[in-house]
Design a binder for these strands. Structure first.
Length: 279
DNA sequence: CACGGTGCCTGAGAGC
DNA sequence: TGCTCTCAGGCACCGT
């Protein structure tokens, strides 16, 4: 499930290969692959040169030598693979973008958007101050230079909701999904259902610091993958899942206190936590 | 306004 | 064996 570290791994992999290349053709194969709010069909990007690959939270976009950008969101199961144009089409191939230049094999390369559950999308968008329309309402992620820790703390501390939904709220801090939320809460020793208002500034600061660190480690490991649902641009899985402390470990002993990890369902999600460490 | 709940979607795996 | 059911969770949207 792509969260910030997985999207960053994909972004970095793409950047290495596609910057400076021109898009020859672009086409979609599924009605949901292109977002409804896209200002133009995907084929519009043909002819544009890719000048940068950017990311904020879980949103990724290609800056082009045009007045529009190409935005991508991987949703639950989206993948962006860099492949040779003669490689057979895989199941769930939703769109492809053929690039200029050739590989050493003499074949063209293309970016393939593959998405089993079709919650991901591509979109052609205008950008205001370099931020695409669909990303405008998304908060900065903790890896951005302008990330304002104090502002995030003051937003969270007045909320009347549980802390976990606040951590998942992409308009407060972006990039954190269910896996890294559970991991950050465990590291900070905070119960997922505690109300934001009841936390001190110090505790919230600690929590954000833990979230940042766990995502930093996951980026270094190439992301988390449990199954076929997350791959980097070369089709490889990350290996951070073995470093997870609570997510997917219900019943296993907490690595700090040996108490069994509990799994509860709330806010339409599963939460994993240590009932002893996280009061 | 803030928040909680629901819909979208597919395939793996469980249970019968 | 093969059917049906549940679960996974990204974001947008709706109702309270």
């Amino acid at each position: 499930m792509p969260e910030l570290p997985e999207v960053e791994t994909v972004r970095a992999g793409l950047a290495k290969h596609v910057i400076g290349r021109r898009i020859l053709t672009a086409q979609s194969f599924h009605p949901r692959a292109i977002k409804h709010s896209s200002i133009a069909p995907i084929s519009t990007v043909a002819g544009a040169k890719i000048t940068a690959v950017k990311r904020r939270g879980k949103f990724l976009w290609f800056e082009l030598d045009r007045d529009f950008t190409l935005v991508a969101h991987l949703g639950m199961s989206g993948q962006l693979l860099l492949q040779s144009s003669n490689y057979p089409a895989q199941a769930h191939l939703r769109a492809k973008i053929c690039l200029s230049g050739k590989w050493s094999s003499g074949k063209r390369s293309e970016i393939r958007f593959i998405d089993q559950r079709t919650f991901g999308w591509l979109s052609v968008e205008l950008a205001k101050e370099k931020i695409p329309t669909s990303v405008a309402h998304i908060a900065l992620d903790p890896f951005e230079a302008e990330f304002d820790l104090k502002a995030v703390i003051s937003k969270i501390r007045v909320k009347k909701s549980a802390i976990k939904p606040a951590l998942l709220n992409q308009e407060i801090i972006s990039g954190i999904g269910n896996i890294y939320a559970d991991e950050a809460l465990w590291r900070a020793k905070i119960h997922p259902e505690i109300i934001c208002e009841e936390l001190s500034d110090i505790e919230i600061k600690k929590l954000i610091s833990c979230a940042t660190k766990v995502m930093q480690s996951a980026i270094a490991a190439g992301g988390t993958s449990f199954d076929e649902q997350y791959k980097n641009v070369n089709g490889e899985s990350g290996y951070f899942s073995r470093s997870l402390s609570v997510y997917g470990r219900a019943g296993e002993p907490c690595s700090r206190c040996r108490t069994g990890i509990r799994r509860i369902a709330f806010a339409n999600r599963s939460s994993h936590f240590c009932p002893r460490c996280q009061r």
